[in-house]
């Protein structure tokens, strides 16, 4: 922020944030073999819904690498002119370590709006707004592409928790920096995100990436369905 916010106690202006020297010894690269083995598998996740009292639906998804808290507020009435269908807004927030720039977070957020616009039954909610807040509380991945599948998953589960009508459960999968968000059991794509690397889209690679993503998506989705069914039994 370039303008000093006088509503906050920001401390002396001439203080410099702590800058750490880069480590003297080169950092050890993480084991490659392990990484490959982990790549397509599902990391162990802990999912918890209804954790936040003052909102309509919330979900916490945690693993060793990250912790994402999503809360849904709405549907609530919006001011202004009549709209024949609901409007979704998504805010992505940095957690305790301010890793991502605000414009990058907004870019991801507006991309997510595209996904949820296509899976939430917005006709049911005329003249209403659905506000979704995603907090990336802890994130050790350093790469937002790796995090997006879980952001989509937690947002989807929080929407379910809030009782907002959805056409399909969606989630995303990530392979080699290609993030694909599917619906209809993998028949259709609702979102694609690629930030790094060349697109080698010859027929073979494309089919292989698509297939692996679809497999991962089906795994994640069955995880979500299992979680939701368990909750129902209780």
């Amino acid at each position: 922020m370039n303008v000093q916010d006088r509503r906050r106690l920001l401390g002396p202006g001439n203080a410099k944030p702590i800058a750490f020297a880069s480590s003297l010894e080169p950092e050890t690269e993480p084991l490659k073999a392990e990484e490959v083995a982990k790549k397509d598998g599902i990391p162990s996740l802990s999912i918890k819904s209804d954790i936040i009292e003052n909102c309509n639906g919330s979900t916490l998804i945690e693993s060793d690498e990250f912790s994402i808290v999503t809360s849904v507020y709405g549907p609530k009435s919006i001011r202004g002119s009549f709209t024949s269908q609901g409007t979704i807004s998504i805010q992505l927030k940095n957690g305790i370590v301010e890793k991502y720039q605000t414009n990058e977070l907004k870019e991801v957020a507006s991309w997510l709006v595209g996904i949820f616009n296509s899976v939430v039954n917005l006709e049911k909610y005329p003249k209403s707004g659905i506000d979704i807040f995603v907090n990336l509380v802890i994130d050790k991945t350093n790469d937002i592409s790796k995090l997006i599948p879980f952001i989509v998953m937690s947002t989807c589960l929080a929407l379910v928790d809030s009782g907002i009508e959805m056409i399909d459960l969606t989630t995303a999968a990530e392979i080699d920096g290609n993030v694909i968000s599917f619906t209809k059991g993998g028949e259709e794509i609702v979102g694609f995100w690629k930030d790094n690397g060349d697109a080698v889209f010859n027929d073979e690679d494309f089919t292989s990436i698509l297939g692996r993503c679809k497999e991962q998506y089906i795994n994640y989705k069955s995880l979500m369905v299992n979680y939701l069914l368990q909750g129902k039994k209780k």
Binding site: Q85, T87, I88, S110, W111, V113, G114, N117, S118, L122, G177, I180, F182, T183, K184, E187, E188, I189, V190, G191, F192, W193, K194, D195, N196, G197, D198, A199, F201, D203, F206, L210
Partner: peptide, 30 residues
Amino acid sequence: GKVISPIKTLALNDRYINGFNPLLLKNGIK
């Protein structure tokens, strides 16, 4: 001469938005 990242989907409106056949992604890139 080649397609590089970033590649992403973009919601152009909020009314007609829907899922699409994965092949269209490839066709678009081609």
